[in-house]
Design a protein around this nucleic acid. Structure first.
Lengths: 333, 333
DNA sequence: CTGAAAGCGCTAACAT
DNA sequence: ATGTTAGCGCTTTCAG
């Protein structure tokens, strides 16, 4: 005998299918004894609601779609755990898809919703033109994570990159540094721009100009490349804010290879606080991002959006925490 | 007007719904001109197949479920990318779920299949009793990744941990090391046991006994703890094989903090080849795991399994590659 | 090669 | 409080 269905439960419990459905979805409105009988029948027969049947009837999917880019290393999994936990809590499944870089992306996203493959979409990273056009024409439940989606009417959750970067600069200033540099992240992404802006504005507020701005991306290689540049600088900054931990590691490793000591010769700060940050040598001063919370928040916003696509949902800025470790100290002379 | 359905296309094209269905699913058997007309109608009206409707009818889901544990850092995302790519290629969606540590896991897994939420399951890491009982009673399409599922009749794809570990030991022997130690991974996992076994067997073959076995887990902290132990050893190994890169980093960092130089004072090897390995100081000698390929292979096996649950699918052992970098060298004296 | 009809499993009016 | 009825969108026999 194949998988039991609602009808089987109904027959066994001696009630109509509709009552079983009610017992499952609105137990409150069904007679206590009947409910009891139905629940026993469900147990006995091992009944499980068929998702396809329910979805077809309800015209929804109980699923959230997570769009990721091809570079999921940057604490993607941590955020995903938060997403999964919160979605699961709310009775949603999590679909993962990687068409981020596909030009056809916008159309496919929309299709996912339209064909009730997913009830809402979480998108990591930037966007492309197609997506923009699409969202403007057809409001679909969609929320951005980590990065702003330019001028699109899409609510977004991010860490407060501006404040965090300012805190870093303040920390370095307090240590006595006056010549401070920044290895940027990807500045086509809002996080990269915000971190740069925070860096610049706090410096400016202290009446200082940046000693060095090195335009790079969020990865280890960038750190190594930045180190090469730094070594050739005539006026070297005594402290450098790297836009993410990986970049900081690449930067530090390349410098150490040349005999430069951190923090004795140069102070280095990262951003993210990946697990390794605390165990590097030197342990890395950095910003702790609330990764899991980012995921949780994103899902909450998305669920609101699903509930009411037109709802005005404000962007959420979660605060990062400065973690001071060994990689920063007073300037050399 | 709401989302167009098959009927709308049919009406527009002046054919029956059945023909439209055929045009979509078996274009070959429908008249070329009719097909043309239907395709135009689809374009015009912007039709997308409704997944729930199709799934209900076909009693399947077009989805694969990925079960993950709460510790997804260990190159989880990389493998997931491989999974996503291959699944997507085959027309499947990827669901992510995190009930790994939940004792109710087995039941829920089975439910996922039964209620056609997913057509098959990919499970990362070990298993629990419930899952075992379940699989024995109800064969469901399920494939393991990275770790063997004990004595369960579940095909598994892993890197060849034995051979890789042997290659590491051989490399160290060739450098002249005779006192070699191993910081194990989690030995309740098959990968941890296999790496240990490979280590031991290759040493034995060289007529040597292990100088040091330190029982730990796959994380950075383990590396730090192992370093503490190493420092208190009276007979210190001149080379240590850490069961993963993160452990190696934690180990190296803790040693460097005490003024021990790698590889001058001690050689260290990792396992995995995470992006940072090449950019650490010293760059880490390690085993490169074919992460993406692991994901791809797992999906292929799972699809076979879905096609025929009883099919006899052999385990796949992918080979790892020894990458020699700076963290290993000849022994001190 | 195409159409008519039935039904996958479920839920929500509407009726009692 | 429960049953009856209809139908979500699709595919697939079975006829023609």
């Amino acid at each position: 005998m194949s998988t039991p269905k609602l009808t089987d439960v109904a027959r066994l419990a001696g009630v109509s299918p509709a009552t079983v459905s009610r017992a499952i979805n609105q137990p409150a409105i069904v007679n206590a004894q009947t409910l009891e009988r139905i629940q026993q029948a469900i147990q006995q027969i091992g009944y499980e609601t068929n998702t396809a049947g329910r979805n077809l009837r309800l015209r929804r999917s109980d699923a959230l779609l997570v769009m990721i880019s091809d570079a999921p290393s940057r604490f993607f999994s941590q955020i995903l755990m938060g997403v999964e936990a919160e979605a699961s809590e709310a009775g949603y499944n999590v679909l993962v898809s990687n068409t981020q870089d596909n030009p056809e992306r916008g159309r496919r996203l929309y299709a996912s919703i339209q064909q009730s493959l997913a009830d809402g979409i979480l998108t990591f990273g930037g966007h492309n033109q197609e997506l923009g056009d699409l969202i403007r024409n057809h409001p679909i439940p969609i929320v951005g994570v980590n990065e702003h989606l330019e001028d699109l009417p899409v609510p977004v959750t991010t860490v407060n990159n501006l404040d965090a970067s300012r805190a870093i600069v303040r920390h370095l200033l307090e240590l006595g540094h006056r010549k401070i540099g920044h290895v940027t992240g990807t500045t086509t992404l809002s996080s990269g721009r915000d971190r740069l802006e925070g860096f610049l504005s706090e410096l400016q507020q202290a009446g200082l100009a940046p000693t060095w701005i090195c335009n790079k991306h969020y990865n280890v290689e960038s750190g190594r490349e930045a180190a090469e540049e730094w070594l050739h600088l005539t006026d070297r900054p005594t402290a450098v804010f790297c836009s993410c931990d990986e970049t900081a590691f690449g930067f530090i490793a390349a410098l150490q290879r040349k005999g430069i000591r951190v923090p004795a010769d140069i102070s280095v700060v990262g951003f993210d606080d990946i697990p390794l940050a605390d165990h590097y040598c030197p342990a890395l001063t950095t910003i702790r991002q609330p990764q899991r919370e980012l995921g949780v928040t994103a899902v909450r916003m998305l669920l609101e959006r699903i509930h009411d696509v037109e709802a005005d949902i404000p962007n959420q800025r979660l605060s990062g925490e400065l973690i001071v470790r060994e990689s920063t100290g007073p300037p050399a002379n």
